[in-house]
């Protein structure tokens, strides 16, 4: 619901619940409470995810602010928890520590309103709680992440801090870059790793500018830029990069091998660029394919009149006259 406007939600409630139009979130919330309360009290089965599973006591922990987690784990006769195999922590203390870490990084609260620790079905004589409790452990590619050497990505607590701080995702929102279950920088790491064909989602690891703020804000210090770089490397090894890119890199390698060759080619390119159409400011407005992908949407800055090497040589000559004032 977070990504919908109040009017859209009100419209939905008018249509589905017969509620009068309103823009007051509190009224809509009360309507949702009333509606869902009936569902919670009559449902035969409650299904939840799992934030932490405690090994020493066999406990499933889930965190919520609304109370839906406590409802689903307490009211229906059957409770099913679905968890990724990476959610296991050794001790109760670890779960409580990570709970506070994930909350702090996720919403800025010190702790969430509810932290429910279920250690089995209701005991004899208890007035409520599920009569059956089942836990579904899901591997679904997670052990393959370890196999590929990216186990660090499995430490993720799903707090969303990397998503919220990422200069790219902060601007474009969590639903960009396709319908992947995990968005943001961590999503760019785990989506190709969980995929049967990592080259099918090959763009994701390349979308980051590698500024590193995701690593700085991560409460469990996952080195996301490092993982992204390694993934780029792996994907390139798998031949996921486009052919023009491989050709271009090969050509550049050849050109940069010898300084004289490099200078000569740079001069040639600079001279050729004068033949291309330009804007009033002198920027290039149309490049030949495949570089036209750039100029279709924006101009390409005009080449400097003097090359870096020319400038360098000039500065080196004048350097002795004391121009090193920065």
């Amino acid at each position: 619901m977070v990504h919908k406007r109040a009017e859209d939600i009100s419209e939905l409630f008018q249509r589905e619940l017969g509620m009068p139009p309103t823009d007051d979130p509190e009224e809509m919330c009360a309507a949702a409470r009333k509606q869902l309360r009936g569902e919670f009290l009559s449902a035969e089965m409650g299904i939840s995810g799992c934030n932490f599973a405690i090994a020493e006591t066999g406990t499933i922990c889930i965190i919520t602010n609304e109370g839906n987690g406590r409802m689903a784990t307490s009211m229906p006769r059957t409770y099913v928890a679905v968890m990724g195999i990476e959610k296991v922590v050794p001790r109760v203390e670890d779960a409580l520590l990570l709970w506070q870490a994930v909350t702090r990084s996720g919403t800025g609260q010190e702790v969430t309103v509810y932290f429910s620790m279920s250690s089995g079905p209701r005991r004899p004589g208890h007035p409520d709680g599920p009569e059956e409790m089942h836990v579904v452990l899901v591997d679904s590619g997670r052990s393959r992440i370890i196999e590929r050497g990216y186990a660090d990505a499995l430490m993720c607590l799903r707090c969303g801090a990397c998503l919220n701080f990422c200069p790219v995702y902060r601007e474009i929102g969590g639903h960009s870059y396709g319908d992947t279950a995990y968005s943001g920088p961590i999503g760019a790491v785990v989506t190709p790793l969980l995929s049967d064909d990592p080259t099918a989602v090959k763009e994701l690891p390349f979308a980051s500018s590698l500024c590193g703020i995701c690593r700085d804000v991560c409460p469990v210090k996952i080195d996301l830029p490092r993982l992204l770089l390694d993934l780029r490397h792996d994907l390139t090894q798998l031949g996921a990069s486009p052919r023009y890119e491989r050709t271009a890199i090969r050509a550049y390698t050849k050109a940069a091998e010898k300084p004289t060759r490099y200078t000569r080619i740079a001069k040639l390119v600079n001279w050729l660029s004068r033949l291309l159409p330009r804007s009033a400011e002198g920027d290039l407005t149309r490049l030949p394919p495949p570089l036209n992908a750039w100029t279709k949407a924006r101009v390409f800055p005009r080449p400097a009149s003097r090359s870096f090497r020319t400038l360098w040589n000039t500065t080196a000559r004048d350097g002795s006259k004391g121009s090193h004032d920065g």
């Binding site: 919330c29 602010n65 609304e66 109370g67 309103v113 509810y114 250690s119 709680g129």
Partner: peptide, 29 residues
Amino acid sequence: LHDSGQLAFVTGPSKSADIELTLTLGVHG
């Protein structure tokens, strides 16, 4: 943990900010 089936930590009233980030209390709890 074993004897209680569920142990719950509760910190203040039930809350949500799902609708346009406006804090509302008493969502499900």
